[in-house]
Simulated scan of single mutants.
Amino acid sequence: MTARPYVLLSAATSVDGCLDDTSDSRLLLSNSDDFDRVDEVRASCDAILIGATTMRRDNPRLLVNSAERRAKRIADGKPEYPLKVSVTATGNLDADLKFWHFGGEKLVFTVDSAVAKVRATLGGLADVVSTGPELDWGQVLDELGRRGIRRLMVEGGGTIHTQLMSQNLADEVHLAIAPLLVGQADAPRFLGTAEYPGGSAARMRLLEAQTIGDVVLLRYAPKERS
């Protein structure tokens, strides 16, 4: 049986747990040193995943920005960029977004009812795979494992983080907390309402805590709960 990838959830939030505010412009939570740390983590991974909602909202290129890190990947026998992955249950994608036009190979996971729509929208911009009538994270991870993905970085959004955490599929969490308060009820959050493994009293193991300028990085092992 092919091994599933190691799943690393990465997010930056305000002190009150928000990934962004409700304005039209993206709220920059991290500082330059933390952005560089994220770039280093991206370079260490075989694939990077974001949801379609995050793609539409933030329009990211989702690249390894450091030329030195890209060169090291090539020297190590890896593609210059990690595989870029997205998931959509509705098929509502935009072929003009930056995600599709920068970096290396792209892959989209969707459901049976949306496969034709996604392929028609993207043409040859990405490989498209269905997980059946519903989005099945187990099948997503199994397929990534079959494609040689050993380390997967998940960069949002909150719905995806919530699903992976509640299904006990996240191996590690990197949470960068910025000294900001958003205070908006409709702002997107890192995690939503769900039945999490072990319930509210289950404590995850803390792997690391460090300050990066005015940001605090916390690394947790979600599967190691007491």
Rank of each mutant, 00 (worst) to 15 (best):
M1K: 10
T2A: 13
R4D: 07
L9Y: 08
A11C: 07
A12W: 10
A12N: 10
T13Y: 01
D16S: 05
G17W: 09
C18S: 12
L19F: 04
S23E: 11
S25N: 14
S30V: 08
N31Q: 08
S32D: 09
F35G: 02
V38Q: 14
D39N: 12
D46F: 05
I48Q: 13
L49T: 14
I50T: 12
G51H: 14
A52N: 15
T54Q: 07
M55F: 09
R56M: 15
R57D: 12
D58Y: 00
P60H: 13
P60G: 11
R61W: 03
L62W: 10
L62E: 09
A67C: 07
I74P: 00
A75G: 05
D76T: 00
G77W: 02
K78D: 02
P79F: 02
P79N: 01
P79Q: 08
Y81G: 03
L83S: 14
L83E: 06
V85S: 09
V87P: 09
V87R: 10
A89C: 13
A89K: 02
D94H: 14
A95I: 01
L97V: 11
K98S: 15
F99W: 14
K106V: 05
V111H: 03
V111M: 00
K117P: 07
K117Q: 15
A120C: 11
L125K: 04
V129K: 14
T131M: 15
G132I: 12
E134A: 08
E134I: 15
G138V: 05
G138M: 00
V140T: 13
V140G: 04
V140M: 11
V140W: 11
D142K: 11
D142Y: 03
R146K: 15
R147E: 09
L152F: 09
M153C: 15
T159E: 12
T159V: 15
I160V: 13
Q163K: 10
Q163F: 03
L164N: 03
L164I: 11
M165T: 00
N168T: 08
A170Q: 05
A170K: 00
A170N: 01
E172L: 05
H174D: 14
H174V: 09
A176Y: 13
I177L: 09
P179G: 12
L180I: 13
L181Y: 12
V182I: 14
V182K: 04
V182A: 11
G183Y: 11
Q184T: 07
A185E: 06
A185Y: 00
D186P: 09
D186N: 14
A187Q: 04
A187S: 12
A187E: 07
A187W: 01
P188C: 08
P188S: 09
P188E: 02
F190G: 13
L191D: 03
E195D: 13
E195L: 12
E195I: 08
E195V: 12
G199V: 04
A202C: 02
R205Y: 00
L206V: 08
E208H: 11
Q210A: 15
T211C: 07
T211R: 05
D214V: 02
D214R: 15
V215A: 03
V215W: 05
V216L: 04
V216F: 02
L217S: 05
L218M: 06
L218Q: 04
A221F: 06
P222N: 06
E224K: 02
S226M: 00
